[in-house]
Design a protein around this nucleic acid. Structure first.
Lengths: 344, 344
DNA sequence: CTATAAAATTATTGCGCAAACGTTTTTATC
DNA sequence: GATAAAAACGTTTGCGCAATAATTTTATAG
């Protein structure tokens, strides 16, 4: 294999020597921090090219220069919602010259804390995270390091950090209305148990809708364990024990997958015996039979906006940091065939 | 919000002062590079605790210390295969104290090169990547920086870098045999066009099997564009123009999704009119009707092994670097209902 | 041809740390 | 009690760079 002319990494000093200038001139050429005579300037660039020079990131970091790395903490990259959001974050970040360190919290507060610490130690300039729970304690460690942050998907009360996500209560009510309008009078709700604003809002939306449309009915909520384990059997016995449930609202596409398998094994027919509506639109929803009505979140927008906001904050382009902003994007109800024909 | 006692980041110097020792003692306590008297040792730890001290990664990096970050370059994090592999990489890396910087190449050689450069500049100690194509040129830039690397999924000829993946030719032949044994005599192959060993091996397996079982039949291969675009219409017209095709081998689950939609719109019935078998087992394959027979790759193993090998190399625990090793794991054929009952 | 401002470049410092090297203190030996 | 050996710690340097302060060179005016 043929190696480039100069195979070991060179330093500014070597570049300076090669261009017959001082290292400070080299620095100013690289950083455009001062005018340098065209001739000298070109000589420096030539030397940089010739020696295959690239700045040492550690020396830069040590001098307090920005290193353009952001950290992202989400629950699980295998969940399509997060995969899509992370994809958008990556694209946006790279287009602005930032790299992305990815961490899965697996909805474990300890892992979350660990990752926050590691990321900060690794010198990230900013953080995008989907909080595991409602405790602000974990995030206290961010503040002293004056690292900018953005919360996505989930929101923590009283945390002075911008939020990007959807209006969960509103869209939940809309989904519930859709179910009620199609003759389902007893909707059950299956979701991961996470003690965050997002989940509370969904629950609130669920309860309000349930009470409005059918005040005599029970609230039927099943909280299941996070991704790792298979909850099919748990869902089956829940359905078995709550025979009045005629339809299910699923917390995300992964939960929906488990719900569908449970329903199938119980030999219920969708939508005749059981309606299904799911958060997070999977591309497979239109291919299963019947196709699944879903709440589509604007994953690209969420990732893009969160990243843009973060980078803007990092670059101090904006605003009064004492007050956080909520950026509420709109989710969309994709109507398919898992909820019967309309009774209207 | 209550801040921790000491909110600004402290230095070794401050810790030294607080513990009434020299900074070298602090350094040695932190790095365990020299014996320190128990009493002194404890005093230092206390000071570290009290001042909430954490080493500055840039200073360490500048001194040539390892910073425990690896880079990962894959095609697209939204593909389930890569999401699962990355998940395993992350878990393994974190458990060894490494962080992971994630990059999507989108199978674009320019992006790949860019990411490699950025990662190296960011001081990663190692690289795990799924090469975009067969050119070694891109990877030449890795060598001079003496950064360890592992290839996953795809393999580049003549690149002196370990490989972790499956035996594509073998499993393709096995899948083809399965199709032939179930009465499909003219298998078409739909895949992304990427000029890599993996793809060549699959093609080779496909061709060998086709010739063996049915020498009079054409080779029917359709290469489609990468993820971004929807190829449903292209697949439809390909099927329309090649009516002899009675079954399709799909390059991955995403391609299978597009194939299934094409088949549905052509109103072919699976498996009666058209057999389907796909690389990469999606959890949705068992929920669509009929369920899809698939080649399941050991994604966890791939990610885990690649990471372990990389970290072992980084830590110089092993081996003669002049010769690369291939780590071939075995894929599994998951038989479902998209290929008729056996004719045997 | 000075005097002086302006432009162009250089010398230098210090970021925080690891480790080579140096010093002091303690313990062991005869 | 003198000397050696070992243990315990301290002093210092330099990693590569950015940016400040200092210096040299060039341009302009009188």
């Amino acid at each position: 294999m043929v190696l480039p002319e100069n195979s070991k990494k060179s330093t500014m000093k070597e570049v300076a020597k090669c261009a017959r200038v001082s290292i400070s001139t080299v620095s100013h050429v690289i950083n455009k921090t001062r005018h340098v005579d065209k001739e000298t300037h070109d000589r420096v660039l030539e030397a940089i090219e010739k020696l295959n020079y690239a700045p040492n990131i550690f020396a830069r970091g040590l001098r307090g220069k920005k290193i353009r790395v952001i950290g992202v903490i989400i629950s699980d990259i295998r969940e399509s919602f997060f995969a899509e959001v992370v994809k958008a974050i990556e694209l946006t970040a790279h287009s602005e010259g930032y790299s992305v360190i990815l961490c899965d919290s697996e909805d474990d507060p300890l892992k979350e804390q660990l990752h926050i610490n590691t990321l900060i130690q690794n010198g990230v300039e900013g953080l995008i995270f989907a909080p595991v729970n409602n405790s602000t304690r974990v995030y206290d460690s961010i503040i002293p390091h004056k690292i900018n942050a953005i919360q996505i998907d989930r929101k923590v009360y009283g945390l002075s950090v911008d939020f990007v996500g959807i209006n969960n209560m509103e869209i939940t009510k809309k989904a519930m209305n859709h179910l009620f309008n199609h003759g389902f009078m007893n909707v059950g709700f299956v979701s991961y148990q996470t003690n965050v604003y997002t989940m509370e809002q969904r629950l609130l939306g669920y309860k309000m809708a349930a009470q409005l449309h059918n005040s005599s009915k029970k609230i039927n909520v099943k909280f299941i364990q996070y991704s790792g384990s298979d909850n099919k059997e748990i869902i089956k016995s829940w359905l078995y024990q709550n025979k009045e449930i005629d339809s299910i609202l699923c917390g995300n596409d992964n939960i929906c997958h488990q719900v569908l398998r449970a329903i199938r094994e119980l030999q219920y027919e969708i939508p005749k015996d059981m309606g299904v509506l799911s958060f997070d639109d999977s591309k497979w929803f239109k291919l299963v039979t019947p196709s699944i009505t879903a709440i589509r979140q604007p994953t690209n927008q969420i990732g893009k906006l969160a990243t843009e906001l973060l980078i803007a904050e990092i670059q101090n382009k904006i605003k009064n940091y004492s007050q956080k902003e909520n950026h509420i994007l709109s989710a969309e109800l994709i109507i398919r065939k898992s909820c019967r024909e309309s009774s209207e």
